[in-house]
Amino acid sequence: MSNIVTRMGDGSMLEMSEKELREDIEAGIEEAVDKGGVPPLNQDEIEYLVELFKRKERIVGVEMGNEVILTYDAATLKIKRHSLFEDRVNSLAIYERLLGADTTELCHVDYSYKMLKPIVSYEAGTLEQALSVTHAPMFYGAMPNLGLYTQPDGPFPNPMELLPQGKIKEGRAAYDEMVASAVEDIVFIAESMWEAGADGINLDTVGASGDPDFKASLLAVEKLTAKYPDMAIEMGMAGEFVLGMHGEMYHEGQRLAGLYPTEQLKLAEKAGVAVFGPVVNTNNTESTPWNLARTIALIKPCSEAATIPVHANMGMGVGAVPVTDYPPVDIVSRVSKAMVELCRLDGL
């Protein structure tokens, strides 16, 4: 009998029987164990998920006392994305005083550190204004985005053109130059924003350009925390494993390509990160029970191993949230509750 209503990874509705639900949860766990080398969820955790998806309520939530802290990447950008032409200082006040945000984040519409260099003074001034009229801790955030460093947008040859020509050495050399340049940009902007009074710096979507992107972020964090030991840096990842675009890039003796959340966390912690944001990408051709079980299996060991707060990424297309601009509240609230309670997260 198909009486459990849930959704696919693209958000479309789906009916399943309890048997099908259990099969999807077990298959999701198996995928995580196989690919991520993590332990499977135990029987109690599987039963928790089965009961969660059997519930008929439209909205569910964590037990009282289990609430966590929410951080928001690109917060002011999300107001603008809706064609709401609200000033950014007011946008942040709206986040804290209308939406009950625990933290806020000022950002520029071109959300990459490289693009901020010519306008850093304007950004610092806006940050100072925002800090004077709001109350919640405020991040300044952007992405390392190494994709902007290759010709014609940037100064370096494009490894994606060099590698297919067999120019492996030249491609890797280009990546090395891109890393050095990105570190310089991230450090320059983060220093400016810290000196303007930011409570934290967010390095968002780290690893989007693979292992060089992660390497640049780790080096930048090391430089920044050596100079400013009190600087709180959040590192939010781009994917569940680090793509090997360079392939032979190492940090602290660890090869970066192919690292899953727990190993990513350990390097981030050692570099000096204050809040780590692991990611598991949503597969839109599988069901939400499959995606959620897989996500929990991959992120739970990361949270257990952490000594710093872990805020899992739970935006559209990650953390078992469906790949859609309009994530349904029935699914968002279910994955939100399960991730917090089973992974014992510190935030989202």
């Binding site: 009950g100 945000a101 625990d102 801790p137 994530p327 968002v332």
Partner: peptide, 20 residues
């Protein structure tokens, strides 16, 4: 909408409570 859903399901509540 997603941020609001997370806030209702799992968030501390920011300035409404002691989240900040």
């Amino acid at each position: 909408g997603m941020a609001v859903a997370h806030a209702q399901a799992s968030g501390m509540g920011g300035m409404r409570t002691a989240g900040d």
